[in-house]
C-alpha cells in the first residue's frame, strides 16, 4: 500500500511539477505584470467602498465599469474610441514619416544636420499646449489641427532616436562593407538599415506614447468626440466614473498599440540578446 502510494505520489509530483513548469513558462511573465494593477484596483476598491475618499471624487470600480458598459451599450463608446484611434493613427503616420525622412537626412549628412538640428532641438523644448493656438489658427478647430498636434508629439522622439542611431553606426562596420566591395544599396540593405532599426523602433514606441499624450491635449481643446472629450464631459457633468473610465481606456489602448509595434518589430530584432529580457519586463507590465 505504501509503495503504491509512493509510486502514485511520485507520478503526481512529476505531473504537478511539469504543470507548474508549463504554467511558469507560459503565464508567469504576463501574470507578474498584472500584480501591480490588481493591487491598485484593490486599494482603489477599499478606499472607495469605505468612503475614505468621497464617492463624488472617487467612484468604486463597479461604478466605473457600469459607466463604460452604458456607453458601450448605446454604441457611443466605440465611436469615441474609433475617432481617438483615427487621430492618433494619422498623427503617428504623419509625424513618423516626417521624422524618419529628416532623421535619416540629418543622420547621414553633417551639412543638413548643422542646418536643421539646432532649430529642431529648439522646437523640441516648446510645450505641447503652446502649439494649440497656432494650429487652431492655421488648421481650424476640427481634425487637421488635432492631427497636426499629435504629429508634433510623435515627431521628436522618432527624429532624435533615428538621427542618433545613424550617427552611432560603427565606422568599422562600414569598413567591412568597403573591404568586401559592397555597393551603396548593399551597404544600406545589410549594414545601415539593420543597424538603425532598434533605435528607430525605440523612437516609434516613444513617439506613439507621446502621440497618446498629445491626443488628450488635442481633444481637451475643443472636441465633440473622442476619449479626451469623454473626460471633459465627465468633468463638466460631475461624473468622475466617466473620467476614470476614459483614463483606463487610454491606458489599455495605448498599451495595445505599443504592443502592436513591438510585435511587428520583433522579427527584425531577434538578434538582439538583451531585447527580449528588456521587453519581456516592459511588455508584460
Amino acid at each position: 500500500m505504501n509503495i503504491f502510494f509512493k509510486i502514485n505520489n511520485n507520478k503526481l509530483y512529476k505531473l504537478l511539477k511539469s504543470l507548474y513548469n508549463l504554467f511558469k513558462a507560459k503565464f508567469s511573465q504576463p501574470l507578474i505584470g498584472i500584480i501591480l494593477p490588481v493591487i491598485i484596483l484593490l486599494i482603489w476598491y477599499f478606499l472607495a467602498v469605505t468612503e475614505t475618499i468621497r464617492n463624488s471624487l472617487l467612484p468604486t470600480p463597479n461604478e466605473v465599469l457600469k459607466e463604460i458598459l452604458i456607453l458601450a451599450h448605446d454604441g457611443t463608446l466605440f465611436s469615441h474610441i474609433q475617432i481617438t484611434l483615427t487621430r492618433v493613427f494619422y498623427g503617428f503616420i504623419g509625424g513618423g514619416i516626417a521624422a524618419t525622412i529628416l532623421g535619416i537626412l540629418t543622420g547621414v549628412s553633417p551639412f543638413i544636420r548643422k542646418l536643421f538640428d539646432p532649430t529642431i532641438q529648439a522646437l523640441k523644448a516648446v510645450p505641447s499646449l503652446a502649439w494649440v493656438p497656432l494650429f487652431i489658427l492655421w488648421f481650424g478647430i476640427f481634425e487637421n489641427s488635432k492631427v497636426a498636434l499629435i504629429s508634433v508629439g510623435v515627431f521628436f522622439p522618432v527624429y532624435l532616436n533615428l538621427m542618433m542611431g545613424i550617427r552611432q553606426i560603427d565606422k568599422r562596420m562600414i569598413e567591412v562593407a568597403n573591404i568586401n566591395n559592397l555597393n551603396l544599396f548593399q551597404t544600406i540593405r545589410w549594414i545601415l538599415l539593420p543597424g538603425i532599426i532598434p533605435e528607430w523602433i525605440t523612437g516609434l514606441r516613444s513617439g506613439l506614447a507621446l502621440g497618446w499624450m498629445f491626443v488628450i491635449a488635442a481633444e481637451l481643446m475643443g472636441a465633440s468626440e473622442g476619449l479626451g472629450y469623454l473626460m471633459i464631459d465627465g468633468q463638466m457633468t460631475g461624473r468622475p466614473a466617466l473620467i476614470i473610465g476614459a483614463l483606463i481606456l487610454f491606458a489599455i489602448i495605448g498599451k495595445l498599440t505599443d504592443e502592436l509595434i513591438y510585435l511587428s518589430a520583433k522579427p527584425f530584432l531577434k538578434w538582439k540578446e538583451s531585447l527580449d529580457t528588456m521587453q519581456g519586463g516592459a511588455n508584460n507590465a
Binding site: E175, V176, W190, P194
Partner: peptide, 26 residues
C-alpha cells in the same frame, strides 16, 4: 578594395544582426 585581397581586423567586426552564414555571405 579587390576580391583578390581579404582582410581580417583586430576585432572580428561581425554584424551582430546577421548570423554566421550571412556574415560570411557579405
Amino acid at each position: 578594395p579587390s576580391s583578390n585581397i581579404g582582410m581580417v581586423f583586430q576585432d572580428p567586426r561581425l554584424m551582430p544582426w546577421l548570423n554566421v552564414y550571412d556574415n560570411i555571405k557579405l
